[in-house]
């Protein structure tokens, strides 16, 4: 390829790059203005704004191991159940089983889960109950049936 060929293609790109740059500039101040004004959305939706989660801030859920207070593995999260208001109420764990045989699905209360992210994004997920404690919970079938959620036992006055 001749030098002329390379420089010609660069010249063609140049006005395009300037145009893109010009289009990008207005986005920067727009984000700062967002909370102050309510911009009516045009029928053709504008591009989504972008928020960031810092490194180490996010913890994935699906397929992640959940350990109990005794640091033993309880199971893996296979589903997150949210209520009508969009708040997570329970996580469904795949508990037990050997070589894939005999595992059960148990829904545990979201508030019993604690997410401790670490800088590499592979945070620990700790449940307030051990596998033994959630043993008696009926199995989770589907989201469209009544779901029994295992919750931590109430720490009240000791019963005789």
């Amino acid at each position: 390829m001749s030098l002329f060929h390379i420089s010609a293609s660069r010249v063609r790109l140049f006005p395009v790059t300037i145009l893109l740059f010009a289009m990008a500039l207005p986005h920067v101040p727009a984000r700062a203005q967002e909370p102050a004004q309510a911009v009516p959305h045009p029928p053709a939706a504008s591009a989504a704004t972008q928020e960031t989660m810092a490194r180490g801030e996010a913890t994935g859920t699906l397929g992640r191991v959940v350990i109990g207070p005794d640091a033993k593995v309880v199971g893996r999260i296979i589903e997150v159940l949210v209520d009508q208001a969009g708040e997570p109420r329970a996580a469904v764990l795949d508990v037990g089983g050997f070589l894939g045989v005999g595992s059960r699905r148990v829904a545990v209360a979201w508030r019993a889960l604690h997410f401790n992210p670490s800088p590499d994004g592979q945070g620990r997920i700790v449940l307030d109950m051990t596998a033994n404690q959630i043993r008696a919970t009926p199995e989770y079938k589907a989201a469209d049936k009544p779901v029994t959620v295992a919750a931590p036992p109430q720490a009240g006055p000791a019963h005789p």
Partner: peptide, 8 residues
């Protein structure tokens, strides 16, 4: 089980 660990 394996695919679950791979977040399927």
């Amino acid at each position: 089980v394996y695919l679950t660990t791979e977040a399927w």
